Simulated assay, not measured.
Amino acid sequence: MKRCMFVDDSSVIRKVAKRILGGSDMVVIEAASGLDAVEMCAADMPDVIVVDGALPDMQAVDFIRRVRAMQAQVTPQILISLVEMDVGSIMRAKRAGAQGYLLKPFNRPQLLERFRTLKAAA
């Protein structure tokens, strides 16, 4: 079973993602801050991480670099989540180790399609 972590200070975004992705083949875990997410990743690395591009406690690229520096059995696929298309932010995230991006607000088809491109959802 795959594990996905949504790192976003918006409980609404986390709940919507959990409702869309949660099921028999995916467990969705939530973190409201970058620091909480770093601790959770150190304890048990998820398969996929979607990180908000505007976390209140740390830059998304710093979070991505910290996760990439961890020694873990799993090497997660990472997406940065943005409210608008920002090529600079996307490129910085990719240089830090992200595989791509997700625009929010997202709906079920958009989120599932993004996860299919990562080979993380059926």
Rank of each mutant, 00 (worst) to 15 (best):
E39D: 12
V74T: 12
S33R: 08
M45L: 05
A54N: 14
V67P: 07
K2F: 12
V7F: 00
A60C: 10
M40K: 12
R114Q: 14
D44Q: 12
V28Y: 02
A69C: 08
A42T: 09
F115K: 05
F115M: 14
A32C: 07
T75S: 14
M91F: 12
K15M: 14
M45C: 05
S89C: 11
R3W: 06
V16M: 10
P105M: 03
K94P: 02
P76D: 00
L35S: 13
D57L: 07
D62T: 13
Q59E: 15
V61Q: 13
Q73P: 15
R116W: 06
A17C: 11
Q77Y: 09
M40A: 13
G34Y: 00
A121Q: 08
A32W: 03
D86A: 06
Q77M: 11
L102I: 04
Q110W: 02
Y101L: 01
V83L: 14
F106Q: 00
A43S: 12
M5C: 08
G100N: 09
P56R: 04
A72F: 01
S33L: 04
G53L: 00
F63V: 01
V27M: 10
I29E: 14
V38H: 09
M58S: 06
M70Q: 09
Q110C: 06
V61P: 15
S89W: 04
M91R: 15
R3C: 10
R65K: 13
R66D: 08
A31P: 01
L102M: 08
P76S: 00
D25Q: 12
E113F: 08
A60R: 02
F106S: 00
Q73A: 15
R19D: 09
A121I: 04
V16F: 05
A60L: 05
L21K: 01
R68V: 03
P105D: 04
S24H: 14
R95P: 05
E113R: 12
Y101V: 00
I64T: 03
M26D: 03
S89R: 15
Q59R: 15
M85N: 11
G100P: 07
G22N: 05
Q71Y: 08
M85D: 09
T75G: 09
V61L: 08
A93Q: 01
G53Y: 01
N107G: 10
K104L: 00
R14S: 03
G23W: 03
L55R: 03
C4M: 11
V48G: 02
T75P: 07
D9N: 09
L79H: 02
Q99R: 15
V50E: 01
Q110F: 07
C41K: 04
V50L: 10
L35F: 09
R95Q: 15
A121W: 10
C41W: 00
L21N: 01
M40V: 04
A31H: 02
F63M: 05
A60N: 04
R116I: 08
M85C: 06
M1N: 08
D25T: 15
R116H: 07
L118E: 00
R68K: 15
G34K: 02
V87W: 08
I80H: 00
I20P: 04
